[in-house]
């Protein structure tokens, strides 16, 4: 829906000549919606900025939101909805901030009616709808990227690799392991082995409620990959239910060392590295 040049001009004139009245009414409607969750001054600033951008766009002949001339208006709308999405406003509240302009326009149009008024109002209203939908879409985009960021942060948080002892690193896994997370854990653990030069890694799954075939496969692959790099993995904290699942699924853990607890695993590793160190001394008693 595009406004004709005449309509753009008339809307622009209306917005300018009755500017104060419109922004005031606009602000009131939005304020009623938000019930004081946004300061009055902030709200007035937003409405005025939107008002100015709209007048600008119309002045340049941008009667269509998709037009080149409306680029700045789009930017203002996007910024507004991004801010509201981050501050936790709902999608409806954000879109209403734009739709309230209709109310304000209707208010001033009622006072000076001409033969064109109804037609104009429908056209203006369509433009406002476009703006509202655009706001809604940028709101959703912002929320989606927020969710993606949080998911990534959660992944970072939930997969710490800690140094337990000289040459021993551990990953305490907590929570449900899906394939994507298992993959991140695997890559991170192997990289830590290289960075710290640690020949031993303990994967502790005490905090993992369940293991399916795929996750078990990921753990197995991690162990094999670590061996290829010259490091040994020990799995600790296998719960009874998980042990039953592993056997029931027919997953072969082969010669991978498993220990009941993290402490047992550490003791096992220290004994291994101790044996290795003592071997450098000649032993003739055998």
């Amino acid at each position: 829906m595009t406004l004709s040049a005449d309509q753009s001009g008339r809307l622009s004139y209306l917005l300018t000549s009755r500017g104060e009245q419109i922004t005031q009414r606009w602000t009131e409607v939005v304020a009623g919606q938000l019930r004081g969750r946004l300061s009055r001054a902030e709200l007035v600033r937003q409405v005025q900025e939107l008002h100015r951008a709209l007048v600008d766009a119309l002045g340049k002949g941008g009667g269509d939101l998709a037009a080149e001339e409306a680029a700045e208006l789009r930017a203002v709308l996007a910024e507004l909805s991004q801010g509201q999405a981050r501050q936790g406003f709902s999608a409806t509240e954000t879109a209403t901030g734009v739709f309230a302009l209709k109310d304000a326009l209707l208010g001033v149009l009622e006072t000076d009616q001409t033969s064109e008024t109804l037609r104009d109002y429908v056209a203006f209203s369509a433009l406002v709808d476009q703006m509202g939908l655009f706001t809604f879409e940028s709101y959703v985009r912002t929320r989606e990227s927020l969710i993606a960021d949080q998911a990534e942060q959660l992944l970072e948080l939930s997969t710490p690799v800690v140094k337990l002892w000289e040459g021993v690193v551990a990953v305490p896994l907590v929570g449900t392991l899906d394939s994507a997370r298992a993959q991140v854990v695997m890559e991170r653990l192997l990289q830590t082995l290289v960075d710290t030069g640690s020949p031993y890694a303990i994967i502790d799954i005490t905090g993992v409620p369940a293991v399916d075939t795929q996750v078990a496969q990921h753990i197995l692959k991690t162990v094999v990959a670590a061996r290829l790099m010259g490091a040994d993995c020990i799995i600790s904290g296998i719960r009874p239910q998980i042990a039953q699942t592993i056997v029931a699924l027919g997953i072969e853990f082969g010669d991978i060392a498993t220990k009941a607890s993290l402490a047992d695993a550490l003791r096992h590793v220290l004994r291994l590295s101790g044996v290795e160190a003592s071997r450098r001394q000649p032993r003739r008693e055998a």
């Binding site: 695997m186 192997l190 290289v194 692959k221 094999v224 790099m229």
Partner: peptide, 9 residues
């Protein structure tokens, strides 16, 4: 390298 080991597996 880790990526090489993962790929070999």
């Amino acid at each position: 390298r880790p990526a090489v080991a993962i790929t070999l597996v």
